[in-house]
């Protein structure tokens, strides 16, 4: 007999004569304490994310590529990785063509295997989109796909994420329902709530453990 059937048989024997417990999920418990007036949502997200070392800018949709340029130049960074197949990627590329800033625009357009070493060590920053934010916990929702690959938000020391102000929800439960997550999830759905950190030595908080040392969120107000 296989391990599988042995395990399942043992478990079934343990349940003999019992009936499954009812589903008494109470959504009020995970929503009611975490509701905000529309005008408070962004403030809540902001304060939670800033408390864990995230830099936040609120600006209009037209302004953001120039702000990316400023962020890079003020830090003296050499380059920034972008996703050419995305809407925001195209906007960034246009800006770069027009303004011709110093930092080099790197394209994520080939499989990781072809440039792993470079991606691990040479890339200074990245720009990714998000599919929303969560006010209750101060989180970004990232939905990586073929256009916006997974490692973009992990490897570069500076991660710049774009968040539409209109896509901030109150809580995780609301977000799940609104976007109907249970109908289909991507390969790797992510909630990101700050830059990478650790408190493994003496519980002293240190940022930039393995992922980005800095997270900058650009909240885009619809102009």
């Amino acid at each position: 007999m296989s391990a599988r059937s042995n395990i399942l048989n043992k478990l079934r024997a343990g349940l003999a004569g019992t009936t499954p417990r009812p589903d008494d999920f109470n959504e009020g418990l995970v929503t009611r304490p975490w509701q905000y007036a529309p005008e408070d949502r962004i403030a809540r997200l902001r304060s939670l994310m800033e408390a864990v070392h995230t830099e936040i800018h609120q600006l209009t949709t037209e302004e953001w590529p120039a702000r990316v340029q400023e962020l890079l130049e003020s830090r003296g960074l050499k380059n920034v990785l972008y996703a050419p197949g995305t809407e925001h990627g195209k906007q960034l590329a246009e800006h770069w063509q027009r303004a011709e800033p110093r930092p080099e625009l790197l394209v994520y357009d080939r499989p990781i295997e072809e440039w792993k070493e470079e991606l691990f060590w040479q890339v200074d920053a990245s720009v990714t989109g998000t599919v929303g934010g969560i006010a209750a916990t101060g989180s970004l929702v990232l939905w990586p796909d073929r256009h916006d690959p997974r490692l973009m938000s992990l490897l570069p020391p500076l991660h710049i994420a774009l968040l539409k102000a209109s896509e901030v929800e109150d809580n995780l439960y609301g977000m799940m329902q609104k976007q109907n997550w249970s109908a289909g999830l991507p390969t790797n759905l992510l909630l990101v709530s700050g830059p990478s950190k650790t408190a493994d030595i003496e519980q002293v908080l240190a940022y930039g453990a393995h992922g980005p040392k800095e997270l900058v969120v650009l909240i885009l107000e619809d102009a």
Binding site: V52, Y108, T137, R146, L185
Partner: peptide, 24 residues
């Protein structure tokens, strides 16, 4: 565990890299 409202990363994996994806 840590008194955090959430951890920095919540990583939900539902499969291996798809044919047209660039990493994973």
């Amino acid at each position: 565990a840590l008194g955090q409202p959430i951890t920095t990363y919540v990583n939900m994996i539902s499969g291996p890299r798809k044919a047209d994806e660039l990493d994973g």
